[in-house]
Design a protein around this nucleic acid. Structure first.
Lengths: 344, 344
DNA sequence: ATGAAAGCGCTAACAC
DNA sequence: GTGTTAGCGCTTTCAT
């Protein structure tokens, strides 16, 4: 195949009888450059199909303009909105994104971190995998001074900032809502309690119970990996309880939706027999019947804030050094799955 | 903040009193290198926290080991499995992935392509946006000899390979299934007919109708952008038809699920009044009631095949030059939403 | 406003 | 098996 040789600034310089330095400056919007020479250079560059060699540029400038993103999975509505937010901000600031999924495994997460390390990312945005226990694998990056910002699923580290919602409050509100509906035996199905998001929501759950004088009962709290396969077992478990719970607060909309289906199949009425509250306001909440009450938080915003904070820090427009955490807004969205008809 | 200076092969060389070339060779598993020197070098490298500067390396080797991926959206189950497949293969071949979403807009797609171009990706994997009309914006890449492989949503280009399922066959089978259930007025709701996937499925639909002697009727075919907001309007339209369709083949599971909900609200029984078939086997198919009959195809496999083909081509282990298209398997998964009880 | 020149860190051709 | 050396394409002082 005949293919064009790569054009360099030297080619442009030669053709225009000027120096490569001038070409470089023109292409980079250097202030001290004649507007006319600049125009000529840019049009010549276009003509020759020039593209900057970012490797030469990165090598020289010791900056890659690349941000690494590690997420557990890409396949949730929430995560994809987060990424859209990050991409938007990154694009505007001419940063590139390298995205990797840990598929909920620390092992994969470690490999991802290593890749990011070797890619010399300027900074890292991370939502931790299901079973990450500590941040040791991030140390090499931290030692090199690469800023790391955790979002949503975080662990605290004295040198890193976290972006989260107030999960305790969200869990509290969800549980309180169920209590307000008259529920007395509220089950809580959640994820690995090492993850802040689940730990804090549990705290909120307990707080709400305590405030209402309801008894906290260990057998009403169950953790799961949210796999589709485990739903039936879970439903079997909960229906074997005495008394059967009259409400469930489930920290995952997809799992909640599957539970609703399974519970209905088992003969329960939702919400009359069992009221359900989910988490995340996934579009599935509007499909499952009855529609799912859930906690909404804005993924796009979280992504934007995360990326913006990191980039501002990188551009030294502000520092996140001393910011320990940024808390974003969340709200309970009440739908039919939790509304016990009070008037009947 | 005190942070370590970046270690180079020169640092290692100096400390070990050998030449940088030897260090480079050792680190790159060059065959002609003493096993002992290699060991010493590697342990020294680890000690100093050395990481290769891929920019210097890329600059020198004129290869980036990076593959660009452009997809319409990340937020579908299908797409995330595709990406997981690509990542797996890429990782194994030590390629990196740069992922970008076009958010279904050509404009954004063009920007993405430009970014990829400037990132000097070795190759590109693309699923086209909703409204892409031609491949002109890929020409700069093609001119430079960067191989581009389209998957799922494709347009043919003499220099590019496509990876798809047999959408015509899938559409044909879906429609035929509905016909076999005794449906006579089968509606088809689909996407922009410029996209091969929708165009071909429509062809399959028409073929099935024709074969069964059913009349093809334009008012039974509607296109949509699959936005949640348009569901009600669509349902209103279809219920205003005379006669009201007794089946709908919808080329998107999410939209199909929403339609089921809306139709039920409008008083229709699914599948008795209206049978529904979707497309993609999204997990939502198992949540909506009745469970959705759909066409399944394996995203992970599509991702793996796409990445593998491209990488093999890049490594010159095989060429995709003369491969116009690769067709993957798909199958109809029959569930309750389309099963009219024949025995009643 | 522009040019000359050095050097970022690595690799590979060539020598020994 | 190892060293020498040149240069990938760019940016950036320092001059002018």
């Amino acid at each position: 195949m005949k293919m064009e040789k790569e054009t360099t600034i030297y080619d442009i310089a030669k053709q225009l009888n000027i120096s490569p330095a001038t070409v470089s400056r023109a292409l980079n919007d250097h202030p001290a450059i004649n507007i006319d020479t600049k125009k000529v250079i840019i049009s010549k560059a276009k003509e020759l199909g020039y593209r900057t060699n970012i490797f030469a540029s990165n090598l020289r400038r010791k900056k890659t303009n690349t941000i690494g993103v590690i997420v557990p999975r890409l396949n949730s509505y929430f995560m994809s909105t987060v990424l859209a937010g990050m991409e938007k901000v990154a694009n505007e600031a001419s940063y590139n994104l390298i995205i990797a999924q840990s598929l909920e495994s620390v092992k994969k997460e470690m490999a991802n971190v290593k890749t990011m390390f070797n890619s010399h990312v300027d900074g890292l945005l991370v939502s931790l995998s299901y079973d990450t226990e500590n941040l040791d694998h991030f140390e090499p990056l931290i030692k090199k001074g690469v800023p790391i910002l955790f979002f949503d699923r975080v662990l605290t580290h004295k040198k890193c900032t976290s972006i989260v919602i107030d999960n305790l409050k969200a869990g509290y509100e969800a549980t309180n809502h169920l209590i307000a509906q008259g529920c007395k035996h509220i089950m809580h199905i959640t994820g690995n309690l090492q993850r802040n998001v689940y730990q804090d929501r549990l705290k909120g759950y307990r707080l709400a119970l305590a405030e209402s004088g309801l008894h906290y009962c260990e057998e009403l709290v169950r953790t799961t990996d949210f796999s589709y396969q485990s739903v039936n077992e879970m439903v079997q478990y909960l229906t074997s309880l005495k008394p059967v719970p009259d409400a469930i607060f489930i920290t995952n909309d997809f799992y909640a939706a599957h539970c609703i289906v399974a519970l209905k199949q088992a003969g329960f009425s939702i919400p009359e027999d069992i009221a359900i509250v989910g988490f995340n306001d996934d579009p599935i909440a509007m499909v499952v019947e009855p529609n799912l009450t859930t906690v909404r938080y804005h993924g796009q915003e979280m992504g934007e804030v995360a990326a913006k904070s990191l980039i501002n820090h990188l551009n030294e427009q502000s520092s996140i050094k001393d910011t320990n955490a940024i808390i974003l807004h969340s709200e309970l969205v009440v739908r039919a799955s939790s509304l016990k008809g009070k008037s009947t």
